[in-house]
Nucleic acid binder design. Structure first.
Lengths: 259, 259
DNA sequence: GTTAAAAGTGTTTTGCTTACACTCGATTAT
DNA sequence: ATAATCGAGTGTAAGCAAAACACTTTTAAC
């Protein structure tokens, strides 16, 4: 083996062009080849009513008029893909600074009957409470949250996009803290467990679930060396007709944002 | 939770357009908005000389003339992304029917100094022995295999693409059979272990490694109910100045191909 | 004060992961 | 022909993580 302890290549984009490059650029004319359109589609997910919900818009123009679709739009010529995705997200839900991740790029010819459209699909995780107003874009009528397990008929290949999203999300639950993106700042452990259950589609054991969490408890704050995921808060939330429940906070609120 | 035992949505693209769609399509004219160029870049990986190698081409035209790059090319208007990737792969290496997977889409404005280029990156895994001839494309000079751990200076954001590839590949080693794509039909267990070691960048324990494999052994072929990953073959390969080594075969050679 | 509803809390068993060292078989050199 | 070399091949014990499993506590409503 070449070098046993190398982990990644660590390369970044060279910032300097060479002399010949400038010469060439001066004479470069964008060619007149036909080009596909490029869009971003955003699968916006939230957890509410003990269910995993996705934001869909009802198309009020052809093609697929009357069917529901994942919101999306064209990528601007000066706009990165991530930026385009954030812009669409903001336009639809009014939220910014939420978790956003590129999912997959769908580019079958014929996926849009009008013309060649390649779409870079993203998914976003938002807290239900953050979303105030749902605004429809120009070619959309209603906007609504649908259970990802009980979807209406979908336009384009958006059913496939949602399948893929659910697969990715389930996969990431196991080795990341992604679930916290779907909860408010303060939450109970039961609420956290519900998020996992709703995404995985199965009930989990309460005691085993809690064993897996690394929690910094209130009293013994001595061992400050360890790295915890959750922090117990001094506050509690009154239960309805039962006892109060402890509140927790996710410690590392960094890395919420990409792009 | 809405429905506990649902696993995925199971949606597929609706095949029928509606009456209004045809009406609309008849009058549809592709708009004159400016569009980005879309390319595919293929990270072609192989294992040889106990190292993980990537195929690079030396650019003989600007920009980044003289630097090395991952092979790639434009996506045809009637061509799916997977097809375009396979075409590029065939053009460079002469191989078909190998493992190919979409990696990520890179679309920062400015990643190509000429014009806006969005590239859908793929990676391919090939056996070293399958690749006969390396053919350079039109804007490339030399073609060569480089150790992914000792790379030359790279054009565009291709260093980032290779970083990402290695990350994905390492991740997939744990929960998939992807390593078999890098080996010939028949191989020894030590050869298999070398593939894992070269990708992970660390030595593995021989006995523990073998414990993790599920092998159908030659003699006790009674328990046919279990599902094995490897099959012991009656043949052996003569060792150099040591004893013969057993040969194995990967049982489920399906799913080699996507797209 | 009895009931209802959800919170909170440990132990045991089982399986997986890790660490670790010698013998076997064939070839090569003396 | 004998010894040295090289990699193949093989098992066990300890530690750790995962899974199964049930009762008590707290508050509000009646």
């Amino acid at each position: 083996m070449a070098d046993a302890d190398l982990k990644t290549t660590g390369n970044t984009q060279p910032s300097q062009l060479q002399a010949a490059d400038y010469e060439y650029l001066a004479t470069y004319q964008p060619s007149n080849y036909e080009r596909p359109s490029v869009t971003v589609d955003i699968v916006i997910l939230t957890v509410s009513d003990q269910d995993l919900k996705v934001l869909l818009v009802k198309r009020n123009v052809p093609p697929y008029q009357g069917l529901w679709a994942v919101p999306g739009g064209f990528v601007g010529m000066q706009e990165s893909l991530d930026k385009a995705a954030r812009r669409e997200l903001l336009e639809e839900t009014g939220v910014a600074n939420v978790y956003l991740e590129q999912l997959y790029t769908f580019g079958e010819p014929g996926r849009d009957p009008r013309t060649r459209v390649i779409t870079v699909a993203y998914f976003a995780l938002v807290e239900a409470s953050q979303v105030k107003t749902l605004r429809a874009g120009s070619d959309a009528g209603e906007v609504a949250w649908w259970s990802i397990y009980k979807l209406p008929e979908l336009a384009f290949d958006h059913g496939q996009i949602l399948d893929y999203t659910l697969q990715r999300l389930r996969g990431k639950l196991g080795y990341s803290n992604i679930a916290f993106q779907l909860l408010p700042e303060k939450f109970t452990l039961t609420e956290l467990q519900r998020v996992y259950e709703v995404i995985l589609g199965e009930k989990l054991d309460k005691r085993n679930f809690r064993k897996g969490l690394s929690i910094r408890e209130l009293n013994r704050s001595s061992e400050s060396s360890k790295t915890y995921m959750l922090e117990e808060l001094p506050e509690t939330r009154p239960g309805g007709n039962y006892g109060p429940t402890k509140l927790f906070r996710f410690i590392d609120r960094v890395e919420r944002i990409i792009g």
